[in-house]
Nucleic acid binder design. Structure first.
Lengths: 172, 172
DNA sequence: CGAACTGTATCAGAAACTTAATTAAGTTAC
DNA sequence: GTAACTTAATTAAGTTTCTGATACAGTTCG
């Protein structure tokens, strides 16, 4: 791999902006707002969370999360469980039905990206494949701004295809 | 470059989802909704557009765009100009103040990505740099579905307000 | 224990979006 | 040339989603 190549942050920002806009406007079968889908995604990805945690990660008020969770619960997409370690708190779990929605949307995204990737050259696809671990590590660094730096581990096959979740494990 | 490396679409989808969520919740100085910011981004990036074009690209109704543009115009972020080629249409232009907001947010994103990139190894940064042209081409392929091979679907014309309740997009 | 703090719920009101109806300009057919 | 149709934008009314303020229960600390 050529280490002499310089990474243009401006180009990276542009590309990620474009992918963001391309990703977001994917229509959803059920009438769920973007924030609602994002909450389901968070719960499916990182396990049960408190309402205050969700409010923080989605950058909406705690009041909005309470109302949204109430509606999601009525629709059977999440469940409220008491937090055994804190009588005030509620842990929101995603149900199988809720996870199915997240998975369905991911499948649609994969289908769309697959079509696009098919039209790239093998060399282009390979260049993306090589870069994926580094991109994944940027996300990880963002989620854990401090804390111990793991070794770089630039092994290409590292990010598990079938083991999607392990990044955020929280003690209680 | 090794052409033998296979690109995992599942991994790519996951990484892009994470970047999307990381990008979106970036706080904005002024109180502008995501859709509003997206419209400003579109106008700043691709020049003046009709209201119907904006409604199509943002996947909201024409009515919502009209109301949003009215408010943006009141705030001096966009301007309405008559379309010389069609007396019914209006062309929405972004003003300098509107472009400044887009640029400001991009600068914030670049600063954040810069911090993260600094903590990667040179080899990791290089791998991303090598992959950027391919990623940019994926976005381009998405925006212009008519490639070299087949004429595919035009997709542009009839999108109107086609009852987004059930399934918004119809393929042919 | 009591005071201060934290996590959640509730309610009124604001903001953003949708549907439906309206106005106006352009296009097509007779 | 005018009637009928289509397209672009606006307006009005109603719904959903979010914020701000407040209340209340559980926790922490003096």
């Amino acid at each position: 791999m050529p280490e002499s190549v310089e990474l243009s942050i401006a180009d990276l920002t542009h590309v990620l902006e474009d992918f963001t806009r391309m990703h977001i406007r994917l229509p959803s079968e059920r009438r769920l707002s973007f924030t609602t889908l994002s909450v389901l995604h968070t719960l499916a990805g990182s396990g049960p969370k408190r309402l205050t945690e969700l409010a923080g990660s989605e950058q909406v008020t705690q009041s909005a999360i309470t109302q949204m969770v109430t509606k999601l619960e009525r629709d059977g997409l999440v469940e409220r469980h008491p937090d055994p370690s804190d009588g005030r708190a509620v842990l929101v779990h995603v149900t199988a039905a809720g996870a199915a929605i997240v998975d369905g949307r991911r499948a649609e995204r994969m289908a769309r990206l697959s079509e696009l990737a098919d039209r790239l050259t093998p060399a282009e696809r390979a260049s993306i494949a090589v870069a994926l671990p580094a991109l994944a590590r940027m996300v990880e660094l963002h989620e854990r701004p401090t804390g111990e730096d793991d070794a770089a581990a630039p092994e290409a096959a590292g990010t598990g295809t079938d083991t999607p979740r392990e990044s955020t494990r929280r003690r209680r």
